[in-house]
Structure formats: structure tokens, C-alpha cells
């Protein structure tokens, strides 16, 4: 018990000194446990590889240049798709949010298309565009678009009328009200939508790569599955997890928090 307390004390002291450490420390016992389970050989090695094998495989994948190339492919697809999706979704969302008639006419349709879900489009996209980049880009753009549109509309519509009236009575023009009152008010929602959209888009990308499969991390994993090399699957999963963890918690979440603090309408 005293050992545990000592270790815990060290953990607490170090994490207060370097807060970044607390993001990594919990993985140490997990990996140790994983190694221990593998060492006990409860599961056959072909089902559950050990940490060292995975490390070896990832090193060899890195060394051969497969991992960086596939990772680059996945990231470029995601970035292109997300950028295109946002460029389409934000203006559309602003338009629908500002126009009551457009809202009435399109809102159920938007909800329905959001509900169909990205992956259900894959078969018909394969018929239309074949196995290729167009299919994957389409899926990602589609996935990113709908959460962003829906959240933008929500954000614009939840803008407080009294703020708009205040701006109006101070003599602001409609464009100024849009850019200085409505849009900043909607920004936290837009960012939330973006975060959701990217989360879904990321998963859609993996599914698309598994099914369409020419390159990318999803393809790497499924190709490994076909060859039965479980360590490559695990490498793929870890890479995916780390990557998205970084993107989500070091880039998207701080932006969301910052916009929430800066422009969020905190009602007291």
C-alpha cells in the first residue's frame, strides 16, 4: 500500500509540475497490463500481439515509408473534404438561418439527409464514381457538411433579438448586424458543428478507405486483416487514436472553448 501511495504521490507531484504529462501517464499502466496479458498467453498471439511486436511492426512500416505515405493520404483527404464541406456549409447555414421560409422548406430535408448517414452513400457512390478519390471526397464533404449546416442554423436562430434590436437602434446596417452581432453569436455553435462534423468525417473516411480501399490508414488496417497480420491492425488503430486525440483535444477543443468564452452568450 505504501508503494502505491508513493507512486501516486510522485504522479501527483509530476503532473502538477508538467500538466501535459497527465495526458500520457495513464497509458503506461495500460500498456503494462496489455504486455502482462500477452505474456500470460491467455489469447493466442495471432489474436492479440504484444506491445513489442506492435512497436517493431510500426517501426518497420515507418522505415519502409508505408505508414507516412498512407497517413499523408488520409490526412490530405480529410483536410480537403473538411475544407470543401465547410466552404459549402457555413454560407448555406447562414442563409437558411436568416431566412424563415428557407428554414421551413429545408430543415426536414436537412435532418433527413443527416440521418441517412455518410456510409450509406458509399454503395451508390461506387456505382456513380467507381472506386476512387471522388467517392471518398464526396463522402467526407457530405459528412462534414450536415452537422455544420445544422449547427450554424441553430446558432444563427438562437441569436438574441434584443441584441439585434440594440444594434439596430444604434443605427447599424443589416450587414453590420450580421457580421458584428449574429455571426459572432453563432460562432460557438458553428465550431461545435465543425467538431462534430470532423468527428463523423474522420470515421467515414476510415470506413470509406476500408471499403473503397486504395491507400490510407483504413486500407492499411483492412489489408492487414486480409493478410491476417494482427500487429499491423493494432498499429493502425493506435495511429488513428493518437492522431485524432491530438487533433481533437489540442486543436478543436481549445478553439471551441476559446470561442465559447469569447463570443458565447453566457446567460447569467
Amino acid at each position: 500500500m505504501t508503494y502505491a501511495q508513493t507512486i501516486w504521490g510522485m504522479y501527483v507531484r509530476w503532473t502538477t509540475a508538467w500538466p501535459a504529462l497527465s495526458a500520457f501517464a495513464p497509458f503506461v499502466p495500460l500498456i503494462a497490463l496489455w504486455g502482462f496479458v500477452v505474456w500470460l498467453e491467455i489469447f493466442p498471439r495471432v489474436f492479440l500481439p504484444g506491445p513489442f511486436e506492435v512497436l517493431q511492426t510500426s517501426w518497420s512500416l515507418l522505415y519502409k515509408g508505408i505508414l507516412p505515405a498512407y497517413l499523408g493520404d488520409s490526412l490530405v483527404r480529410l483536410a480537403v473534404g473538411a475544407a470543401a464541406g465547410m466552404a459549402l456549409a457555413i454560407p448555406l447555414g447562414i442563409f437558411i438561418g436568416l431566412n424563415q421560409r428557407a428554414h421551413d422548406a429545408t430543415w426536414p430535408v436537412l435532418l433527413f439527409f443527416q440521418a441517412i448517414g455518410d456510409i450509406a452513400w458509399l454503395p451508390i457512390l461506387l456505382v456513380w464514381f467507381g472506386f476512387g478519390l471522388t467517392t471518398m471526397t464526396f463522402v467526407i464533404v457530405y459528412t462534414v457538411m450536415f452537422p455544420v449546416i445544422l449547427n450554424t442554423v441553430l446558432g444563427i436562430r438562437s441569436a438574441r433579438p434584443e441584441l439585434e434590436r440594440a444594434a439596430q437602434s444604434l443605427g447599424a446596417s443589416r450587414t453590420r448586424i450580421l457580421f458584428e452581432v449574429t455571426l459572432p453569436g453563432a460562432l460557438p455553435n458553428i465550431i461545435t458543428g465543425l467538431r462534430n462534423g470532423l468527428g463523423y468525417g474522420w470515421r467515414a473516411l476510415i470506413a470509406a478507405e476500408i471499403i473503397v480501399g486504395t491507400s490510407g490508414i483504413g486500407f492499411l488496417m483492412f489489408d492487414a486483416r486480409r493478410a491476417g497480420s494482427v500487429d499491423e491492425i493494432v498499429v493502425g488503430m493506435i495511429v488513428l487514436g493518437i492522431l485524432w486525440y491530438i487533433v481533437d483535444s489540442w486543436i478543436l477543443a481549445p478553439i471551441e472553448r476559446a470561442t465559447g468564452e469569447r463570443w458565447g452568450l453566457v446567460t447569467t
Partner: peptide, 14 residues
Amino acid sequence: RFFSVLAGIAWIPI
């Protein structure tokens, strides 16, 4: 958080 980020589709192969 790490595992919820990984949730779903990424587990299909394994």
C-alpha cells in the same frame, strides 16, 4: 477519451 475517439469503425478489422 482515447478509446472513445477510436470508437466504432476503427474496430471493424480487429
